[in-house]
């Protein structure tokens, strides 16, 4: 499927490949990473394909229909990785993904399908590569993307009556990653918590922390923290699944600890 898309793109089309579940894209890793991802660099001929990855966990989906693959794709050169969190971004970024001359891995969280609605579609959105301040605050920055933005917003709401003003940054795309917007937010708050739904080893949250500590260490009043899913396959049963992924309870606990420092 991805191979035929690459061939079509070389011949001038703009194919969209829908993976049904992000997890299944592991079968096409070779074509996405080694063929599409290297093509422009090697041959000077870009490959404008869009690979749609229905991503992330939902109740009862289990180990093979729940994964978040953005960190893997972001690790490889030659790919753009989008992770929209809102209906508006899902719409404008998909259109932009098709228009971009390079391969785009478009991670659409299944949470968006089931829980979000919009009355009308936007005519324009922020450009790709620009993060969005989803909620303003001055005590702590929570950097997130995709469905976890909504968990972060819920936590910010929950901690507001206690007097904490939490800023939530929605990365929108993890590659390119808008380091400047994150640094500007940390400059305001002095504290950083990164939340991602993918597995904990490496990945987007680690990358954000590496960049902030490397480039804005002096802005930090406390050691930056991150929350990811657990380092096991994703469980089937809703009780296990909700404990496996980052959840509001865990985010609140870590946010409070950071705010106390």
């Amino acid at each position: 499927m991805v191979g035929t898309a690459i061939g079509s793109a070389i011949e001038g089309m703009r194919p969209i490949v829908e993976m049904q579940f992000a997890d299944f894209s592991s079968i096409a890793l070779n074509q996405i990473l080694n063929n599409a991802g290297t093509h422009y660099w090697r041959t000077n001929v870009p490959v404008p394909i869009t690979v749609r990855l229905p991503s992330g966990g939902t109740k009862g989906s289990g180990p093979f229909h729940s994964q978040s693959m953005e960190s893997i794709y972001a690790h490889y050169p030659g790919l753009i990785v989008m992770t929209p969190a809102t209906v508006e971004d899902a719409y404008t970024m998909l259109i932009e993904a098709v228009a971009i001359d390079d391969p785009v891995v478009y991670c659409e969280h299944k949470y968006l399908y089931y829980h979000l609605k919009a009355d009308k579609l936007p005519t324009e959105g922020l450009p790709t590569g620009r993060a969005r301040i989803a909620r303003e605050g001055r005590d702590l920055t929570i950097v997130s993307y995709s469905a976890m933005v909504h968990e972060a917003l819920a936590v910010a709401e929950q901690l507001a009556p206690e007097g904490f003003e939490i800023e939530v940054v929605d990365l929108r795309s993890v590659k390119p990653l808008d380091t400047n917007t994150v640094l500007a937010s940390v400059a305001r708050t002095g504290r950083l918590l990164c939340v991602g739904e993918s597995f904990p080893w490496g990945g987007v949250t680690a990358e954000v922390i590496a960049r902030v500590t490397g480039e804005g260490f002096h802005l930090l009043d406390a050691a930056p923290q991150r929350i990811n899913a657990k380092d096991t396959p994703i469980p089937y049963h809703p009780n296990l699944w909700s404990a496996h992924r980052p959840n509001a309870k865990e985010i609140v606990r870590k946010a409070r600890a950071l705010l106390r420092e």
Binding site: G3, I6, N30, H39, V45
Partner: peptide
């Protein structure tokens, strides 16, 4: 290779170029 001149540039992972050729033909 020169994909712009229809000489596809192979990757080392054998078999991968078959579907790429199919895609070019579909296009």
């Amino acid at each position: 290779g020169r994909p712009q001149e229809n000489q596809l540039a192979m990757v080392s992972h054998l078999g991968a170029m078959i579907s790429v050729t199919v895609g070019a033909l579909m296009s």
